[in-house]
Structures are given as C-alpha cells and as structure tokens.
Amino acid sequence: MPVETWLTFTLGFMILGSIVALELKDILSSIIAIGIVGLGVSMSFLFLQAPDLAIVQFLFEIFALIILVRAFIGKENHQLESSSTNKVMTGVGIVAAAAIFFLSIPVFRLLPPFGEPLMQVSQHYLDAGAAETGAANLVASVILDYRAYDTLGEVTVLFTAILGAFAILRSTATHKTAGGDHE
C-alpha cells in the first residue's frame, strides 16, 4: 500500500480528532482528544521516514498532556456557556475557514507534487555530510554543524520562553504569600 493512502487515512482521523477536541464540553476529554492529533502526527513522521521527529513528537505529546492536565484539571468552576456572540463567531469562523480552503486550492497546484522534492542544497548535505562532519545521523549534522546558528537561536527562544513563564508565575507566588515561598 502506498504511503499516501496511509497518510490520507491518518490525516482524516486527525482532523476528526481535532474537531472533537474543540467541540467537547468536558475539558479532560478535550485534552485527551488532542492526543489523537499529536500521536497521529508522530505516526505520520514515521511513515515519512523521519524517526528523530517521531521520537521527539511522541515525547512532546506526553509532556504537553501532563502540563495541561496538571494545570487545568481539578477546577470545578470551569464552565462553558453559549451566547449569541459565540454563535456569530462560530459561523464567521466556519465560513472564513471554508473560504480560505477553497480559494487556496490553486496555490497548492503550484507546489511540487508529493514525493518529488526540490533537493538542491540538501543534496550536498546527503552527499558530503558524512565526510565533512563525521556524523552518521545526517539530521544531527544539519542541526549542529551546517545550521548550528539556527540551533543557537532555538536555545535562545527556549530560554526566553521559560524565563517568561518563570517571571509570570514567580511574581504571583511572591504576591500571594508575601515572600514565603520565594527564595
């Protein structure tokens, strides 16, 4: 069976799962339903010959699930109410998404077809990567040798995001307990 059929099936399943996750009332079911999408992405990475990404995506899914459940489950005062503005925005959202989808179909015809990528720079990485960097994993050689500057930017972004979370939450802690927990 060609990989495209598998991917069509998995993507349809993921779209279904994401719609279910957005429309469910219960927030725990919603967070678990989003796991369908994440694990579907992980499985698609395996089909698309990217084992590094499958591992990292799988771990990402577990970690995001733990963070969301840890932060949001257990609050009984979480309720969802429907009002007129909500219905109006739902209609606007569906119409806008459908319009964008149908108007952008001609754009996708211009892209290279599935399975035939434009490999101009990457062909050099594949041909000379092992000799130039000494790494058998060519993805690692791209991340940490050819494009290590990108990774430095990633480290900086991660540092800033975590620092932002610290700044937001630590100030709350000092505010609440007047410096009791803060050290």
Binding site: L48, A50, Q57, P117, S122, G129, S141, I143, E154
Partner: peptide, 18 residues
C-alpha cells in the same frame, strides 16, 4: 529523504513545547 526540513522541524517542536 530531505534532511533539511527535518532539522528545522526538530527545533520547532521543542520551541512549541516552550
């Protein structure tokens, strides 16, 4: 397959977690 998008997405996933 092309290793370049895989390398970019690998960093992108972790940034998304952050």
């Amino acid at each position: 397959v092309d290793p370049l998008p895989q390398a970019l997405v690998l960093t992108s996933i972790v940034i998304e977690l952050g």
